[in-house]
Amino acid sequence: GSMEQGFLPKGWEVRHAPNGRPFFIDHNTKTTTWEDPRLKIPA
C-alpha cells in the first residue's frame, strides 16, 4: 500500500507482479529489481 511506498528511496516505486510478488522500479536509472532497495546498505 501507500505506507510502504513512503519508505522507499527517492525515485523508487513498488509494484506487484501478476503473481503478487512485489518488485521495485528505480525511475532514476529506469530499471527494475526484485531486491528491496531498503535492504541494501549504502556504501
Rank of each mutant, 00 (worst) to 15 (best):
D36S: 02
N19A: 00
N28I: 08
R38E: 04
L8N: 02
T29L: 05
P42Y: 10
F7W: 14
R21M: 10
D26T: 00
G11P: 01
F23A: 02
T32A: 11
P9L: 07
E4D: 13
E35M: 09
V14S: 04
F23C: 10
F24Y: 13
Q5W: 11
T29N: 09
N19M: 02
P37C: 09
L8F: 06
N28L: 07
N28D: 05
G1V: 11
W34C: 06
E35T: 08
L8M: 08
H27E: 06
P9Q: 05
K10F: 12
T31N: 06
T32R: 09
W34H: 04
P9W: 06
W12C: 02
G20D: 03
P37T: 01
K40Q: 14
D26V: 00
E35Q: 10
E13L: 00
I25P: 02
V14D: 02
P42M: 09
W34S: 04
T33H: 08
R15W: 06
K10G: 09
L8P: 02
H16E: 09
R15T: 07
Q5F: 14
Q5R: 09
E13W: 00
Q5H: 14
P37F: 01
T33S: 08
G11I: 01
F24C: 06
P37R: 00
S2T: 12
G20E: 04
V14W: 01
R21Y: 07
K30E: 09
G1F: 10
T33P: 00
T31M: 08
P22I: 09
N19C: 06
D36M: 02
P42E: 12
W34P: 02
I41M: 12
G1W: 09
L39R: 07
K40D: 11
H27S: 07
A43T: 12
H16V: 15
G11R: 01
L8K: 01
R21D: 08
M3E: 11
G6I: 09
A17E: 09
G6L: 13
H27K: 06
G6W: 12
D36Y: 03
P18D: 08
T29S: 08
F23H: 05
K10I: 12
F7L: 14
R38I: 03
M3G: 11
R15Q: 10
G11M: 02
L39F: 10
W34M: 05
R21N: 07
G20M: 03
P9H: 05
G20N: 04
T33L: 03
A17Y: 07
F7P: 15
V14N: 01
D26I: 01
R21F: 07
Q5T: 12
D26Q: 01
L8H: 02
G1H: 11
I41N: 14
P22W: 05
H27N: 08
R38Y: 05
G20V: 01
H27W: 13
K30Q: 14
I25K: 04
E13V: 04
F23Q: 07
T31L: 08
L8C: 09
V14A: 06
G20C: 09
T33D: 01
S2H: 13
P22V: 11
D26Y: 04
M3S: 11
A17N: 07
R21A: 07
L39N: 14
N19V: 01
G20Y: 00
P37W: 00
P37H: 03
K40P: 14
W34I: 04
D26S: 01
W34K: 03
G6N: 11
I25M: 05
P22C: 11
D26M: 00
K10C: 15
R15F: 08
A43Y: 11
M3A: 13
N19F: 01
R15P: 03
Q5A: 11
N28H: 06
E13C: 07
W12I: 03
K30T: 06
A43Q: 13
D36E: 05
F24A: 00
E13Y: 04
G11D: 05
H16F: 15
T29Y: 04
G20K: 05
T31W: 06
H16S: 08
I25W: 06
K10L: 13
Q5C: 15
W12K: 00
M3T: 11
R38T: 07
P18V: 09
T33F: 06
G1Q: 10
N19Y: 02
I41Y: 14
F7S: 15
I41G: 13
A17I: 05
I41L: 15
V14L: 10
A43E: 12
R15L: 10
D26L: 00
A43P: 13
K10Y: 11
R15D: 06
A17C: 10
A43C: 15
F7V: 15
T29P: 00
N28F: 07
R21P: 05
